[in-house]
């Protein structure tokens, strides 16, 4: 499991570099970079922090990943999880932080 950073979207704001629990993200030439993607835990902290959805989560091929990419868009209480799936479909799941898990 790891993340991809879309360089063309990244504004270099640095927000993601502050929160990674493994300090894996650094700014380099005003763009966020992950030097060791194999050290990523997949926690998605950086995705949630990015204001322009430049970061995506994916499942590594060695763990059976099929090439899907998931972004997060934050809107007040809401987290919109936007998944671009292998067949080309997009699926959006919205979670409201005021709603508890049912299970």
């Amino acid at each position: 499991m790891s993340i991809l950073i879309e360089e063309s979207k990244c504004t270099g704001c640095g927000a993601c570099t502050q929160v990674c629990p493994g300090s894996l993200l650094k700014l380099q030439d005003a763009k966020a970079k992950i030097a060791k993607p194999e050290r990523c835990w997949g926690c998605c902290s950086c995705l949630k922090e990015c204001p322009v959805q430049a970061i995506a989560l994916y499942l590594g091929e060695d763990m059976g990943g099929r090439g899907g990419r998931m972004h997060v868009q934050k809107e007040g209480h809401l987290l919109h999880w936007i998944a671009a799936l292998p067949g080309g479909a997009t699926k959006i799941i919205t979670v409201d932080s005021r709603d508890s898990n049912k299970y």
Partner: peptide
């Protein structure tokens, strides 16, 4: 309906599992 609730519950703690379900 439980699929939807599970997808959300896992996004709140282990998002990779939800992505796995979406991919498969």
């Amino acid at each position: 309906e439980q699929d939807d609730e599970l997808a959300k519950a896992y996004l709140n703690m282990a998002p990779g599992q939800t992505l796995r379900w979406l991919e498969t």
